Amino acid sequence: MNGDRPNGDDSLETEQHLRKALQHLSEARDGDDLRKTNAVALEEVANTVSTVLHEYEHDE
Rank of each mutant, 00 (worst) to 15 (best):
L25W: 00
R19P: 01
L25I: 04
H54M: 15
A28L: 15
H58C: 04
P6L: 07
N38F: 10
A28S: 14
A39G: 06
D32M: 03
V49G: 03
N7T: 10
D59L: 07
S50I: 05
L53Q: 01
E27A: 12
Q23S: 13
L42M: 03
D59G: 06
Q23W: 08
A39Y: 06
D32F: 03
E13F: 11
G3K: 04
E27Q: 05
L25H: 01
P6A: 13
A28K: 09
T51H: 11
K36T: 12
H58Y: 14
E13K: 13
T14N: 10
H17Y: 06
N38T: 10
L18T: 01
R29Q: 15
Q23T: 09
T14S: 03
D9T: 11
E27R: 08
A46R: 02
L34C: 10
Q23E: 15
T14Q: 04
E55Y: 07
G31M: 14
E43S: 07
V52P: 00
A28M: 15
G31N: 13
V45A: 02
Q23K: 13
Q23I: 12
L22G: 01
T37N: 12
N2S: 15
N7S: 15
D9F: 10
Q16H: 11
D4A: 15
L18E: 00
D32C: 04
R5E: 12
N47R: 08
Y56K: 05
A21N: 02
D4Y: 13
T14I: 11
G3A: 06
R19V: 09
S50A: 07
R35Y: 11
R35K: 09
M1H: 11
V49M: 05
E43H: 07
A21R: 01
A46S: 11
D59V: 06
D10A: 15
V52E: 00
A21D: 03
A46D: 02
L42C: 01
H24N: 14
N38G: 12
L12Y: 04
Y56L: 03
D30V: 06
V40Y: 05
A21C: 03
E60D: 11
L42I: 07
A41T: 08
S11P: 00
D32H: 05
D33V: 01
T51R: 05
T51G: 10
E44C: 07
R19H: 06
L18G: 00
S26K: 14
A21S: 08
P6N: 05
S11D: 01
N38L: 09
L25E: 01
V52A: 01
E57N: 09
V49I: 08
G3D: 12
P6F: 02
L25M: 02
H24R: 15
Q16E: 14
T48C: 06
S26D: 14
H24M: 12
V40W: 03
L18N: 00
H17I: 13
D30F: 04
K20Y: 10
T51E: 09
D33M: 07
E57W: 02
H54W: 09
L34R: 09
D9L: 15
E43D: 11
R19A: 05
L12V: 07
E15L: 03
T14F: 00
E43I: 03
L25D: 01
L12E: 09
R35Q: 12
D9C: 11
D9V: 12
N7W: 12
L42Q: 04
V49W: 00
S11Y: 06
R5I: 08
D59S: 14
L22M: 08
E13A: 05
H54D: 14
T14Y: 02
